[in-house]
Amino acid sequence: VTLFVALYDYEARTEDDLSAHKGEKFQILNSSEGDWWEARSLTTGETGYIPSNYVAPV
């Protein structure tokens, strides 16, 4: 399991995006899409895309 933590708040801009709150942890499901990674929030269980530069490894 690849875990990352949000460094900043991010507000989803499309229905495919996933909002993130600073300190929230995510499981990365797919990081092969360049700057946008598919992730699952460990807080809400929701999945979507987050900007890779907004997260760091735990």
Rank of each mutant, 00 (worst) to 15 (best):
H21M: 11
V1P: 12
F26D: 00
Y49M: 13
L18V: 07
A20C: 14
A12N: 04
Y10W: 15
P51Q: 06
G45N: 07
V1H: 13
K25P: 05
A39Y: 08
P57K: 07
L18M: 10
D16S: 14
R13F: 07
K22L: 06
E46R: 15
F26H: 00
E11G: 05
E15S: 13
D35S: 09
V58N: 04
N30G: 09
I28R: 02
V58E: 08
T14L: 09
D9I: 05
Y54W: 08
I50K: 02
N53Y: 12
S19H: 09
V5H: 04
A56K: 09
D17V: 12
A56E: 09
V1M: 13
R40P: 00
D35C: 14
L3Q: 06
K25Q: 12
V58I: 13
H21P: 02
T14G: 15
F4G: 04
A56W: 09
R13I: 10
R40I: 10
L18A: 01
W36K: 14
V55T: 03
T44N: 05
I28S: 01
E11N: 09
T47E: 08
T44G: 03
E46D: 08
D17A: 14
L29Y: 06
F26Q: 00
L7M: 08
N53D: 09
V5M: 08
A6W: 04
G45E: 04
L3P: 05
F4D: 00
E46W: 07
A12S: 09
E24H: 03
S41Q: 02
A12P: 11
S32V: 10
I50V: 06
G45M: 06
L42N: 04
E38S: 07
Y8Q: 08
T44H: 03
E46M: 14
G45F: 07
S32K: 11
T47Q: 09
W37S: 02
D35N: 09
G45Q: 05
R40H: 04
V5P: 00
E33A: 13
A6F: 08
T47P: 00
Y8G: 05
E15V: 12
G48T: 05
Y8L: 08
A56F: 08
D9E: 07
A6P: 00
D35Y: 14
A56S: 09
Y10Q: 00
W36N: 06
A6T: 03
L3I: 15
H21K: 15
A6D: 00
Y54T: 09
S31Y: 12
A56P: 01
L7W: 03
D9G: 04
E46P: 01
V5L: 05
T47I: 14
S19C: 07
T2W: 13
A39I: 06
S19M: 06
S32N: 10
N30Q: 08
I50L: 12
G34W: 09
S41L: 03
V5A: 05
L29K: 05
T47V: 14
A20Y: 07
E33G: 13
L3W: 10
D16A: 14
K25L: 15
A20P: 02
V1A: 13
A6S: 05
E11L: 10
A12T: 04
N30C: 11
I50D: 02
Q27V: 15
E15L: 11
T2P: 11
T44D: 02
E15M: 11
I28V: 08
V55C: 06
Y10C: 05
S32L: 12
T44K: 03
L18F: 05
K25G: 04
W36R: 15
D9K: 05
E33D: 15
T14V: 06
T2H: 11
S41I: 04
